[in-house]
Nucleic acid binder design. Structure first.
Length: 589
RNA sequence: CGGAACGUGGCGCAGCUUGGUAGCGCACCUGCUUUGGGAGCAGGGGGUCGGAGGUUCAAAUCCUCUCGUUCCGACCA
């Protein structure tokens, strides 16, 4: 039994000044967590109970799916990560340290390498596959900016699992199994979620999906179709290209003087105003222009390369989308000094004429998928003060490839069905990947198949942020009064509030009730503080968020207690004699 | 990593402009009263003013650096 009189917690009347998002504010105010380090939190007794409940649910669902739990160290040597290339690829994101002999170690940001090596260590036959193993482990990432309490920390707990299969069909099946296990887990946690197509980032691999809890404080932006069930992280949206246009009979490209057109808007105004430049049938819009910009890619080994991106002028570049495709390279600004080194680039008037690996600049040129063969554009003529009109893709220029770089707008057509997309924010609570053979190849994980031939194992990796899930559950359930836990996660089933003077019989009656409830198998938190005013107790009960609040007070004179539902606020007077039975029913339903 | 703001008992804040005994509310301790929506009175304990260096007779206050926090951007399973 938890007793407020002796519980190690102190609720705060005011919000801590460093807490912005609601879950962070309320978890601190309710005495669930305390900040201990930049991006590190201490769990207090109530918080630890909640955390363990979440962890238990995750573990039970993994076990139910037939996955086996193992446990690795978090402190690992450099070598496996060196072999996989991630010692470098992870860059500043990983905590590195040296032992007394000067050997490199890291605090694991994730464990693909170690799982791969462990399986290599023990297994060598196709008969041993498929295999699913997982762990619930502390991970370390040196985040540039930890924020939002438990939502982004530098030390956090993740449930990570890995599947090992002999072939691609097996991988797909393993992936589906995990997908279903995740659906079950998040449903049981009471977390609303959206499954979105994602990109793999530093993990490598092909297919991947994220589980996002849709809330505004989330850091991930995703789109979903207002008509069909398409949903994707904005980074992963693949724009459906329009049909190619036959080149025959399209107007010829012509270079024109267009002074004083530093922006897309001024350019569009000029071509619409001048009779000789007007479109025969309609006004030109920004979408008719082709905007070209050059960025530098910083590769993990420290080298740079230039990349030119062409996209319709009504779109901005979404750097996250670019980086999702060029990773692990980072995108950095193309500086004046870089322009100086490449005279083919005329700042403000860069056009496809100079771009591309086989043209004057020699810079790799990738374009938006909307730039299809036969599409005609107003774009830079690679000369100061001049643009070219009707420059036609496939006839006048040929880019080196396609890139999804343009930002996605609400209302854009769904790639699947063409209806409008809407944009929303979410917290990433899970991510599943079909990794494929990247790690197995790098680390030499092979088995013999039916024919005695060596085959590289194919892998999947799957993660749930356990400590983050605590915040996500808090975030999706709280209200203006405080936290509001789902019963299975709550630190208790019932929160008994005792009111009245110490001389009144409410105290002993509440104690008796608490004991009876525990005997009946319920988890009880009793506010047995003496001399604390009722208002404080009521407010604390609402702040702490136990789903059922029982008040033993005034009503006792009439032989009744009050049962309050934390979420709905609904109150019921229940005769003391029926209290246990009633509450057991409430808590078991 | 760029831009901005802020670091003063456990929490929320004032004091800094104009250098001179470190203050308020909540929380905490003692006593009395009070007990259904953040009680009252009286008394009390607790802070090297984030850290380091500098200027000065004297620094919470002025200067420099540094660490941390928050917001915006960048980054990020």
């Amino acid at each position: 039994m938890l007793r407020m009189s002796s519980l190690f917690l102190r609720t705060l009347r005011e919000d801590p000044s460093d807490a912005e998002v609601p879950s962070h504010r309320l978890l601190v105010r309710g005495g669930y967590i305390r900040r201990a380090a930049p991006g590190g939190y201490t769990w207090l007794p109530l918080g630890w109970i909640v955390y363990r409940n979440v962890e238990r649910i995750v573990r039970e669902e993994m076990d139910k799916a037939g996955f086996q739990e193992v446990h690795f160290p978090a402190l690992l040597p450099r070598e496996p990560y060196e072999i996989s290339g991630r010692w470098t690829d992870y860059g500043d994101g990983v905590f590195r340290l040296k032992d007394r002999k000067g050997n490199d170690f890291l605090l694991a940001p994730t464990h693909e390498e170690m799982f791969t090596l462990l399986v290599k260590d023990l297994y060598s036959s196709y008969k041993d596959l498929p295999l699913h193993i997982y762990q619930i482990q502390t991970k370390y990432r040196d985040e540039a900016r930890p924020r939002a309490g438990l939502l982004r920390t530098r030390e956090f707990v993740m449930k990570d699992s890995y599947s090992f299969d002999i072939d691609d069909e097996g991988l797909v099946k393993s992936y589906e199994q995990h997908r279903q296990a995740y659906i079950d887990t998040f449903n049981r946690l009471g977390l609303p979620f959206v499954m979105v197509s994602a990109v793999s980032g530093a993990m490598g691999g092909s297919a991947s999906e994220e589980f996002l809890a849709p809330i505004d404080v989330g850091e991930d932006t995703f789109v979903r179709c207002t008509n069909c069930d398409y949903a994707a992280n904005t980074e992963a949206v693949q724009v459906r290209p329009p049909d190619a246009i036959p080149l025959d009979g399209l107007p010829a490209a012509r270079v024109e003087d267009t002074p004083d057109t530093p922006t897309i808007e001024t350019l569009v105004d000029v071509v619409n105003e001048r009779a000789d430049l007007r479109h025969p049938d309609r006004d030109w819009t920004a979408a008719d222009t082709l905007k070209n910009l050059v960025v530098k890619l910083k590769h993990p080994d420290g080298t740079f390369s230039a990349l030119a991106i062409g996209l319709p002028g009504d779109r901005e570049v979404d750097l996250k989308r670019v980086e999702a495709q060029v990773g692990p390279a980072e995108v950095v600004a193309f500086e004046p000094a870089d322009f100086a080194k490449n005279p083919a680039l005329v700042k403000g008037y860069i056009g496809p004429g100079a771009l591309g690996e086989h043209n004057a600049s020699g810079i790799r040129y990738l374009v938006d998928p909307r730039v299809v063969e036969g599409s005609a554009w107003i774009t830079g003529a690679d000369q100061p003060g001049r643009h070219v009109i009707n420059l036609t893709m496939g006839r006048d220029f040929t880019p080196d490839g396609v890139i999804e770089a343009a930002e996605i707008h609400g209302g854009d057509p769904c790639p699947r069905c063409g209806n409008a997309l809407e944009i929303a924010k979410g917290i990433e609570i899970g991510h599943i990947f079909q990794l494929g053979r990247r790690y197995a190849t790098a680390l030499g994980l092979t088995v013999l198949d039916q024919n005695g031939k060596t085959k590289v194992v194919t892998m999947g990796s799957y993660g749930i942020g356990v400590s983050r899930a605590v915040a996500a559950v808090a975030e999706t359930t709280l209200d203006e009064k405080g936290l509001c836990w789902p019963r299975e996660i709550s630190p208790a089933d019932v929160h008994i509030v005792v009111t009245g003077k110490p001389s009144e019989p409410t105290g002993p009656a509440a104690e008796e009730l608490a004991l009876a409830l525990e005997t009946a198998g319920l988890r009880v938190l009793i506010d047995d503080r003496v001399g604390t005013s009722p208002g404080i107790k009521f407010n604390d009960a609402e702040l702490l968020g136990v789903p059922t609040i029982v008040v033993v007070g005034k009503g006792l004179a009439n032989g009744a207690i009050e049962v309050k539902d934390r979420r709905t606020g609904e109150r019921t007077d229940v005769p003391v004699a029926d209290a246990v039975e009633h509450l057991v029913q409430v808590c078991r339903s």
